[in-house]
C-alpha cells in the first residue's frame, strides 16, 4: 500500500477553479486548457488522485453548475440518465428499480452511502477504470453515450467508448453529458456479481448478465466482465455458446470455459494476480448467468 506515504489531509496541488454555467462555456474551457484541465463531477476519484498527485491539473472544471445534467428520465425505449446523476439516485430511483434492476443493483454495490451521494454515473464511466461498476451493466444493455463538444452533441456506443488502458473516446474539449440505456428485452432476467477486498472496495472482478428464455431455450444472452481486461469487455464467445441452448448446468459450464479467452488481466494490476482474475471471472460469470436465468424463468 502506497497510500499512507502521502498526506491525504490536504490537496497539495494548486489549480485554477472554473464552474461553467452552460455546456458551451464548459467546452470553451476544456478546449482552451486541453490536457491541463480536469473535469470535476462527484470528486470521489479526482480528489483522492489529486491528494496523491496522481492527477495534477492546472485547471479544474466543475460541471455541476450546468443545469439539466443530473436527470433520470424514462422514455419509450429506455432511460435517459444525465452524466451528473448521483450513483445514489440511480440506486434509489423507483422506475429504474422496476424497469432495469441491473443498474440499481450495480450502483448499490459501489462504495458507501456517502460515496454514492457524491459520485456520479458519468464519473464512474469517464474515469475509465477497467473496474468501473456501472460499465458492465451499460455494456450488456448496449447503452449509448451522449457527448458534447465544439460541434454540438453527438453519440457513441458504450462499447466504442472504452478504448482500454484508461483511455476513452473523447476528443479535446469534449465531455460526456449522459447515457441512453435501453430497456432489457421483454422477460429478461439480469444479475450483477462482484468480488472485492471488502464489500465496499473497488471491484477485483465484476460481471453483469442479461438473459431471456424462449420455449425453454436461451434466446438472448449478453454478459460483460469488468476489471479483467484493460477495458470492460463483453464475453462474446460465451454469449454465442449459450444462445439457442437449453440453460442446463453443462451448457453453462461449457460457456464459461470461453470466459478466460475473453479476458486479458494484467500482471501489474494491484488487487489480484491474473490467474485469480481469470478464475474468479469464470466463477462470477457462472453465478451471474445462473441468477439471470433463474430470474428469467420467473417471467410467465
Amino acid at each position: 500500500m502506497t497510500i499512507n506515504k502521502v498526506n491525504t489531509h490536504i490537496v497539495p496541488i494548486e489549480f485554477e477553479y472554473h464552474a461553467p454555467g452552460s455546456l458551451d462555456e464548459a467546452v470553451g474551457l476544456l478546449e482552451r486548457y486541453g490536457e491541463e484541465a480536469q473535469i470535476l463531477a462527484g470528486g470521489t476519484d479526482l480528489i483522492p488522485q489529486m491528494k496523491q498527485r496522481k492527477a495534477e491539473p492546472k485547471h479544474v472544471v466543475n460541471i455541476k453548475r450546468i443545469p439539466g445534467l443530473a436527470c433520470i428520465e424514462e422514455t419509450p425505449d429506455g432511460f435517459r440518465i444525465g452524466a451528473l446523476a448521483k450513483l445514489r439516485a440511480v440506486e434509489l430511483s423507483p422506475q429504474i428499480k422496476e424497469k432495469i434492476p441491473l443498474l440499481s443493483e450495480a450502483a448499490q454495490s459501489i462504495g458507501s452511502v456517502q460515496i454514492r451521494n457524491l459520485g456520479t454515473i458519468g464519473g464512474n464511466i469517464c474515469n475509465a477504470s477497467p473496474s468501473a461498476d456501472m460499465a458492465t451493466p451499460l455494456l450488456v444493455l448496449d447503452a449509448t453515450v451522449h457527448i458534447y463538444g465544439r460541434d454540438g452533441a453527438k453519440t457513441c456506443s458504450i462499447a466504442e467508448f472504452f478504448q482500454g488502458g484508461g483511455d476513452i473516446n473523447l476528443g479535446r474539449g469534449e465531455f460526456v453529458t449522459g447515457f441512453t440505456v435501453p430497456f432489457p428485452p421483454v422477460g429478461a432476467g439480469s444479475a450483477f456479481e462482484k468480488v472485492g477486498w471488502t464489500t465496499f472496495d473497488i471491484a477485483t472482478v465484476n460481471v453483469a448478465a442479461v438473459v431471456t428464455l424462449k420455449g425453454g431455450k436461451i434466446d438472448h444472452c449478453s454478459i460483460a466482465l469488468g476489471a479483467c481486461s484493460p477495458a470492460p469487455v463483453r464475453g462474446v464467445l460465451a454469449e454465442a455458446a449459450l444462445i439457442g441452448k437449453e440453460p442446463s448446468a453443462e451448457a453453462l459450464e461449457e460457456a464459461v470455459e470461453f470466459i478466460a479467452a475473453c479476458v486479458e488481466p494484467r500482471e501489474r494490476w494491484r488487487r489480484a494476480p491474473p490467474e485469480y482474475r481469470r478464475r474468479s471471472s469464470k466463477a462470477l460469470a457462472m453465478d451471474a448467468l445462473s441468477r439471470a436465468i433463474e430470474r428469467a424463468r420467473r417471467f410467465p
Binding site: T8, I47, P48, L118
Partner: peptide
Amino acid sequence: KYGCGIGECGACTVHLDGEAVLSCMVLAVD
C-alpha cells in the same frame, strides 16, 4: 474528524444539502 482522507472511514461525514457526504472529498468552493 479527519480520519483516512481517501473516503474509507466516514469520520469526516457532514450533510451537504441534507445528504451525508465525506467532507474530505469535497472542495470548499464546490
